[in-house]
Computed example of a mutant assay.
Amino acid sequence: MKQLIKYLSAFFLALTLLAAVGCASTQKQEGTGEYFDDSVITSKVKAAILNEPGLSSAEINVETFKGVVQLSGFVSSRADINKAVAVARGVAGVKSVKNDMRLK
Rank of each mutant, 00 (worst) to 15 (best):
G67L: 02
P53D: 14
T42L: 08
L103W: 12
L8Q: 09
T42A: 12
L71K: 02
K98D: 15
A48M: 07
K95D: 15
A10Y: 08
S9T: 14
V85G: 07
R89Y: 07
L18N: 12
K46I: 10
T42C: 07
S76R: 10
T42N: 10
A58P: 02
V91H: 01
V68T: 12
A24Y: 06
V69P: 03
V91P: 03
G33M: 00
N51P: 06
D38A: 01
G54H: 07
F12C: 07
N82A: 14
A47I: 08
G22K: 06
T64Q: 00
F12S: 10
S76N: 12
L55P: 02
F65N: 11
N99W: 00
S96D: 15
L55E: 03
K46A: 09
D38E: 03
I49W: 02
M101N: 00
Q29D: 11
Q27D: 03
Q70S: 15
S43L: 08
Q3V: 11
A48E: 02
A20V: 10
V94F: 00
S39V: 10
A86R: 12
D100R: 11
V68I: 15
A14S: 14
R78P: 06
L50V: 13
A86K: 15
A20N: 09
I49P: 01
I5H: 04
K95N: 12
Q3K: 14
N82L: 15
Q29W: 05
K44T: 07
A79P: 04
E30N: 13
T64R: 00
F11P: 08
